[in-house]
C-alpha cells in the first residue's frame, strides 16, 4: 500500500515546527502504524534525512508509550493504541496527517515525541497505596464483591497514555486522574486513603496546567482502554466530598 504522509517535524521544545510531506511506499497491509513509520524512517536514513522521532515501547498495546495524533484523533480512528492500529484500516493512496499529542502540560520534545511526565507527577501525588498490602496470593484472602471488582478493573485498565488529555479541547486530564482515583478508591486496600488521594491528585493535576472538564467526552471517545467518562463524575463527587470534610476540619 502507498500513503502520502504529512508529519509534524520540530527540532526541540522551543523551536517552531512544521508539517513535512513524505511518501510511504510499498507498505504491507499487515504493518502496524509504527512499523509503517519504521519503514519510512529506514528510507529517510538511506537518503541521509534525519528519521522521524516518535515514542514506542511494548508495541502490544499495554504500556501506553506510543502516542501520535492521526488525522486529528489521538491513536487514530477506532479503539486501541497507535501500535495496535494496522495500515489495512486506511485507504490505499490516502493522505495521513500525523501530529504530536497536544496539551500545554505535554511539551513536544522533538517531532512527535512529547514529555508526558506531568502524569508521573500526578501519580506521585497519590496514585498508589502507602501500606504494604501483601503479595499476590494474599489478594484472594480479601473478599471483594464482583460488582466492585469489575468496576475497579475497568478503571485499572488505564495505561496512562495521555490520549484523553490530547483529545480534550481543554487539555483536561480528568479521565486519566478519575481512572486512578476510582481504581484505588474502590478497593479495600486503597479506601483508607481515598479522601487525601483525590485531593492531592486533583491539585497536582491543576498545578500541571491541565484544563477543566466541560463534559465534552472526547476523552472517552479516544481512550484505548475504554475508560468511561462516568468515572469523572465519580471523581467530581469524591473531590467535593473530601473538600467538605476538610472544610469542616475533619482528618482526611
Amino acid at each position: 500500500m502507498n500513503f502520502h504522509l504529512k508529519v509534524w517535524r520540530q527540532k526541540d521544545t522551543n523551536a517552531p515546527g512544521t508539517l513535512e510531506e513524505y511518501e510511504a511506499e510499498n507498505i504491507p497491509a499487515g504493518a502496524s502504524f509504527l512499523e509503517m513509520l519504521d519503514i519510512v524512517n529506514a528510507g529517510l536514513t538511506r537518503k541521509n534525512i534525519e528519521p522521524i522521532q516518535f515514542d514506542s515501547d511494548c508495541r502490544e498495546g499495554i504500556c501506553g508509550t506510543c502516542s501520535l495524533t492521526i488525522n486529528g484523533i489521538p491513536h487514530g480512528k477506532g479503539r486501541g493504541t497507535t501500535c495496535q492500529l494496522y495500515m489495512r484500516k486506511f485507504q490505499d493512496g490516502e493522505t495521513i496527517t500525523i501530529e504530536p499529542f497536544r496539551a500545554d502540560a505535554f511539551p513536544v520534545q522533538r517531532d512527535l515525541v512529547t514529555n508526558r511526565s506531568a502524569f508521573d507527577r500526578v501519580i506521585q501525588a497519590g496514585g498508589y497505596i502507602s501500606e504494604r498490602t501483601g503479595s499476590a496470593p494474599d489478594a484472594n484472602s480479601v473478599p471483594i464483591s464482583k460488582v466492585i471488582a469489575d468496576q475497579a478493573m475497568d478503571a485499572a485498565a488505564c495505561i496512562g497514555c495521555g490520549a484523553c488529555a490530547a483529545a480534550c479541547p481543554n487539555g483536561s486530564a480528568m479521565l486519566f486522574v478519575s481512572a486512578k482515583v476510582t481504581h484505588l478508591g474502590l478497593l479495600p486496600q486503597g479506601k483508607p486513603e481515598k479522601n487525601r488521594r483525590v485531593l492531592s491528585m486533583v491539585r497536582q493535576m491543576d498545578e500541571e496546567g491541565f484544563g477543566n472538564c466541560s463534559n465534552y467526552y472526547a476523552c472517552e471517545a479516544v481512550c484505548p482502554a475504554g475508560v468511561p467518562a462516568a468515572f469523572i463524575g465519580r471523581m467530581n463527587r469524591e473531590f467535593t466530598a473530601a473538600s467538605v470534610k476538610e472544610m469542616l476540619g475533619m482528618s482526611v
Partner: peptide, 12 residues
C-alpha cells in the same frame, strides 16, 4: 484556563 491548557490546535 482551558485556552491556556491547549494553546495549539490540531491542524487536522
Amino acid at each position: 484556563e482551558n485556552n491556556a491548557a491547549r494553546p495549539q490546535k490540531y491542524l487536522a
